[in-house]
Amino acid sequence: MATERKEKLIRVLQIMQTTDEKTPLNATQIVKRLDTEYELEGVERRSIYRDIALLQDCGYDIVQTEDKRSGWYMNTHAFADWQIKIMMDAVQQARCVSLNEATKIRENLLNLTSKRGRSRLTHMMQQHPGNVNVNENIGIYIETMLEAIYQHRKIEFQYTEINDSMKKVLRREGKKYLLNLYAIYWSDNNYYLIGAHDNHDNLVNYRLDRIVNLTMSDEKAIDAKEKVGVNPEMIIQNYIEKSVDHFQGELIRVEVEYEPGQAANAILYDFAGGNIRVRKLENGHCVASFQKMDSVTLVGWFMQYANIYKVLAPRELTDSIKKRINEVADKYII
């Protein structure tokens, strides 16, 4: 196959990848785009039919329209537009991804859809980004960690903390941490590294956005089974629930009293989930009963909505909330 024909075939494929069921292209339109976009002049219409057939034989899901005169379209893309939308929104709100990196990822995702799909996704109002001015090396760090796990190698990095002047500084005077990395976990718009140090058997976690100068070490990593015990996947998951997501106990049954209303109902449903039982009281209020993991964040949630919900049970949770309320009140006593 001549070089010119090879290039033309590739360009035809690239053009077809911009189509979908509602925006097909016929041979005449493809020839015109080859000329205007790629400076491939003098292409015969009939050759387009051969190129399309060859691409179909190679497994590309290119479909001809029912009337045939409208041409062909790419029936299957890497992702549906709604899937790309979800990924774009997730990236846009990720606090560990810089605005510059988020913009590049967004553009790469848009390249996975049709020309019409790109237009649909870019014409809607964009939400305010949650990305912050974080380390531009986050992408490189993730690549490094993926490779380290794949090659069973340790990683080395420095960790930062916030000083009294609200400045990010190196922890422990720039100490370098050597870690056997076992998992990279996403929680609350941040990535957490889960692993263990050579001189300790316990698992530890580090936030990726606080890490600097991360590299892959030449040292082989200690296998997770040897370090944390048999069935390391379950052990690591339990650690994540207790240490990263702050779960510290078993499921408990919570009862709250509240005045029903659109906002109160929606907030409680989002928090408690679908398995919630409600009974009405004679005073017009409701008592909701549901199960929730006993965690250090549970008190904080009810403090946030203390003006809406009154916790009735369990007694331990009620006492913790009362104690927190008194502590807050003491801070504001003049």
Rank of each mutant, 00 (worst) to 15 (best):
A2R: 10
E4C: 00
R5K: 13
L9W: 05
L9N: 02
I10F: 13
I10A: 11
V12F: 05
M16A: 01
Q17M: 14
Q17E: 09
T18R: 11
V31W: 01
R33T: 11
L34R: 12
L34F: 06
E39L: 08
L40R: 11
V43M: 01
R46Q: 11
D51V: 00
C58L: 14
I62L: 00
Q64K: 13
G71H: 03
T76N: 03
A78C: 08
W82V: 10
I84F: 00
I86H: 07
Q92P: 00
Q93E: 08
E101G: 03
K104V: 13
N108I: 05
K115H: 11
R116Y: 11
R118L: 03
S119P: 01
S119Y: 06
S119W: 04
R120C: 03
L121I: 08
Q127T: 14
G130I: 03
N133E: 12
E136W: 02
I142W: 07
T144R: 13
L146V: 08
Y150S: 13
K154L: 01
I155C: 02
F157Q: 07
F157C: 12
F157M: 11
Q158D: 00
Q158H: 05
T160W: 07
E161F: 14
N163E: 08
D164K: 11
S165H: 15
K167W: 02
K168G: 00
V169C: 06
L179T: 06
A183S: 11
I184K: 05
N189F: 11
N190Q: 13
Y192K: 04
G195P: 04
Y206R: 10
Y206Q: 09
L208C: 01
D209W: 13
S217Q: 03
D218P: 01
I222P: 02
D223F: 11
A224Q: 04
K225V: 14
K225A: 10
E226F: 10
G229D: 04
V230Q: 09
K242Q: 15
S243C: 10
V244I: 14
V244L: 01
E250Y: 06
E250C: 08
E250I: 09
L251Q: 14
V254E: 08
Y258M: 04
E259S: 14
G261S: 12
A264R: 05
N265H: 08
N265C: 01
A266I: 15
V278S: 02
R279C: 00
Q291D: 13
K292H: 13
S295C: 07
A306Q: 12
I308T: 15
V311W: 03
V311T: 06
L317F: 08
K322D: 14
D330M: 13
